[in-house]
């Protein structure tokens, strides 16, 4: 079988020394095990995230995403566009959808892109996909389970799916209110998913965690509390914003609410990397602020 290749949109948070750089490290590690190649879109720009709308407006925002699509068409022709960040994925996919529905928006977008020296030969055929979709659809749980060398036995994990990897597009075949793919992935890696994790799709506040911290921390508290209540030792997520929000505010929440939160929040790809026998460093575990000691132990075992 030929090596799978994708046109890769890493997004700002995955850049070196940015908040989700360890996510990227773990994704690169599993790409070696699973033998796929990520071709970074040359000179990609930010998608505008879910907060860009207010100042950016409609067309400038779509132009940003269309620029990435055009660059991908030009340099990585024919390859599916794959994002690791939920917001990047959503933003690009939204633009893609809107362009295919409105010929005026498409014409306006093309006109703007010309200013950047780009021709958008837009046929709307290249799918925009999230990394978890690629894993589940192009590989499937069975394939993903084959390279497991060190099953994550005995670790109880709450799968926090969040919003934007789940809505409005989601992963095919999953429900919006109770998606199960993270649980299935966790199980495939040999760990024990908390199937009754009732806050799995609760919003953490997203970008408003910055601008409305008190209000968002009420959300984050619910998400963590429920994980503890169900006996989880760790939270796993597919979204860099979720990861950051649920991980970094634990101290502040502890101070305010007198709680004792200290739960590691990892990426699905980190679980996979460790289960596949990679080192803690290759799994990006050194990037976790709340250390995932159980995973570190397994990773250091021969």
């Amino acid at each position: 079988m030929a090596k799978k290749e994708y046109s890769f949109y890493p997004g700002c948070s995955s850049e070196r020394k940015a908040s989700a750089s360890n996510y990227l490290v773990s994704v690169e590690t599993i790409s070696k095990t699973l033998d796929f190649k990520l071709n970074e879109i040359p000179d990609w720009n930010c998608c505008g995230a879910s907060i860009g709308y207010a100042e950016g407006g409609e067309l400038p925002r779509h132009a940003m995403n269309a620029r990435n699509i055009a660059l991908s068409e030009k340099h990585n022709a024919g390859q599916d566009i794959v994002a690791t960040c939920a917001a990047c994925w959503l933003g690009t996919k939204e633009t893609h959808e809107r362009l295919s529905k409105s010929s005026q928006l498409l014409a306006d977008t093309k006109e703007a892109l010309k200013e950047a020296g780009l021709d958008l030969d837009y046929k709307g055929e290249v799918p925009i996909r999230h990394m978890v979709e690629v894993l589940i659809e192009d590989y499937g749980y069975e394939e993903l389970g084959k390279p497991v060398k060190k099953p994550l036995e005995g670790i109880k994990i709450a799968g926090y799916v969040g919003c934007q990897t789940n809505r409005p597009f989601g992963v095919a075949g999953e429900s919006f209110e109770n998606p199960k793919y993270l649980d299935k992935l966790t199980e495939t890696m040999g760990a024990e998913p908390v199937e009754s994790y009732d806050q799995k799709v609760t919003c953490c506040g997203g970008a408003l965690a910055f601008s409305e911290p008190e209000k968002s921390q009420v959300q984050i508290k619910k998400i963590i509390e429920s994980a503890y209540d169900h006996g989880a030792e760790m939270i796993v997520t597919p979204c860099p914003v979720c990861q950051m929000n649920v991980e970094v505010y634990q101290d502040q929440i502890n101070k305010k609410y007198n709680t004792k939160f200290k739960i590691p929040v990892t990426y699905y790809s980190q679980l996979m990397a460790v289960a596949y026998g990679s080192s803690a460093k290759e799994a990006g575990l050194n990037g976790n602020i709340v250390r995932a000691t159980r995973l570190e132990e397994i990773a250091s075992k021969k």
């Binding site: 850049e15 020394k17 400038p60 620029r67 703007a112 200013e115 950047a116 020296g117 050194n286």
Partner: peptide
Amino acid sequence: GRLNPLGLISHSGVKDTKGLHAMLKKA
């Protein structure tokens, strides 16, 4: 290693900022 303290002086933006700015202005 998830926040670059040197972000104030060195930061990797896109290379084609000129094109980007022109595109946004047009849009």
